[in-house]
Each structure stands twice: as C-alpha cells, then as structure tokens.
C-alpha cells in the first residue's frame, strides 16, 4: 500500500474514532489540576464588583479550542458579579472576543457599560500594555462602540492596573508572555492565562517562577474549569472523544514502531 493511501486511512480512522466517541453519550470525570483549581479559587474568592480584565489575544483558527476556555471563565466571572473589562491585543480576536463576552453577559442578564465593557483592539500591544499601567483611559479613550470610557459606570474608579484584580489573557501564541513581561514585571499585575494546549510548555517556566499566577490549558483545562463551576459545556462534551483519539494515536505509534523495527531487522537479515 502506498504511503499516501496509508496516511489517508489513518486520518479517516482517527476522524471516525473522534466522531463516534463524540456521539456516544459517555462522560468522563475531569479531575481538576492544581493550576485550574488555583485559577478557579482565586476568582471564586474575589469580593463582588472586583474588576477583572480579560484580553482575547488569539486568532479565529484556534476558536474551537479557545472558546470552551473563554466561556467557562466568562460564565464564572459573570456569576460572581465581577466587573469585566474586555479587550483584544490581536486584531482577529476583536469581534470573537466581543461576541463571547456579550453572549455570556446576556445569559446572566448583565448590562453593557454597567457590568462589563469591551474596549476593542489596540495595535502596538507592548505600548498598550505599558500605557494601561499609567492610564487605561489614555490608551482606550473610547470603547468598541465609540462611547467615551470615562462615561461608563463599569470604569468608575478604574484608572490603571491598581484596581484590576487580575488580567486574564486568552491566547494561542505568546501574547500572554507580553502581559507577564510588561504588566506583571513592571506593574506587579497578577496574570492568568487561558491557553491552547500547544502553548502550555512555553508558559511552564513562567508558571514555575511565579510570574504567571495560573493557567487553564486546552480543552482539558476547560473541562476541569467547567467541572469546578458546575456548568458542564463543550470542554466536558469533548473529553471522551479526546481520550479515545489519544488512545488511537498511541496505538498507531506503537504499531508504527513495531513495523519499523521488524522491517529494519528483516532488512538486516537479508543484507
């Protein structure tokens, strides 16, 4: 069988495993990791009306993985009656971020301008992060819709990071690193990251050094967060499919290695 045909069969089998597992009504228990627990506990213990800043620093292509994380965290923030300042330091995250923020706010009956605001996108992310440490109004004189930031009730008393309990960067790249390096290091701002699984190892050193407070990583992180907040969503729905797909890939790796070593030893025998 040709390599291309074999590859096609493996992809089709993986797709079938994922799709069948997703359809089956099987839920697996998600045991929260210490990092997700830490993220949840911090938000859970915040007093009412504390200010949280959430930055949607990702592209549209990572939405299937990012969305469950964002929604799980946003639901928790709104349930806790916290004041939310949304923004984006990645152009593509702007409309997506606003849509997720607005959709979740509606579910909890929150009012724009009073309970939450979306400041929109700001280019030159490093100057934006540093600038907000001095004055959020100066960086964002207007919100996403052109309302003057000063006139919004949610922004009252919030001049810079001093009144922001935590910045959450929802990222599929290294944008959260800039939050750590500039808002965290210079202004001592607490940073949490919601990350795609592919980025977790990049952030591990920051987590180990305490520069990053906590991480909610990948679909698994979303499932754990949903479990803690008692609102099961896309993260938990996908866990069984993810588990079976991983098992399938592990089996394929083992079979591939057996075939490789057998063909190598038979070549040696012939040679």
């Amino acid at each position: 069988m040709s390599g291309e045909k074999r590859r096609w069969i493996i992809f089709a089998a993986l797709f079938a495993v994922a799709i069948i597992s997703y359809i089956l009504p099987i839920q697996i228990e998600s045991r929260p990791s210490p990092e997700v627990q830490k993220s949840y506990d911090y938000i859970e213990n915040l007093p009412d009306s504390s200010v949280m800043m959430i930055s949607f620093d990702h592209e549209a292509s990572s939405l299937p993985e990012i969305q469950p994380i964002s929604l799980a965290i946003l639901r928790h923030l709104f349930r806790k009656n916290l004041r939310i300042i949304g923004l984006s330091l990645f152009a593509e995250g702007t409309a997506i971020g606003y849509e997720m923020l607005n959709r979740t706010a509606r579910q909890y009956g929150k009012i724009y301008g009073r309970d939450y605001v979306f400041l929109g996108f700001k280019p030159q992310h490093i100057s934006a992060i540093l600038g907000m440490g001095e004055s959020i109004r100066r960086v964002f004189p207007e919100d996403y819709f052109g309302n003057e930031t000063d006139t919004l009730a949610v922004m009252q008393g919030v001049d810079n990071y001093d009144k922001v309990a935590m910045v959450i960067s929802i990222a599929d790249g290294d944008r959260a690193v800039q939050w750590i390096e500039y808002a965290g290091a210079r202004y001592n701002q607490k940073i949490m990251a919601g990350l795609t699984a592919a980025m977790i190892t990049t952030y591990d050193p920051y987590l180990g050094s305490g520069q990053l407070y906590s991480v909610v990583g990948g679909l698994k992180g979303a499932a754990e967060y949903e479990k803690l907040s008692g609102h099961l969503g896309a993260g938990n729905r996908g866990m069984w499919a993810q588990t079976t797909s991983h098992i399938f890939i592990i089996v394929m790796i083992i079979i591939g290695n057996i075939v490789y070593f057998r063909s190598k030893s038979s070549q040696k025998g012939r040679g």
């Binding site: 994922a18 799709i19 292509s61 990572s62 699984a197 679909l219 797909s245």
Partner: peptide, 18 residues
Amino acid sequence: YTVMSRLSTLIGRIDFLL
C-alpha cells in the same frame, strides 16, 4: 501537547458540524 491541541480543534469542529 500539540497533538492534544490539534485534536481539540478537530473535536470543536465535530461539535459544530454535528
């Protein structure tokens, strides 16, 4: 982690399609 990430994306799209 990258494999996990790509599978999460696939599962997200399966969720959307179904």
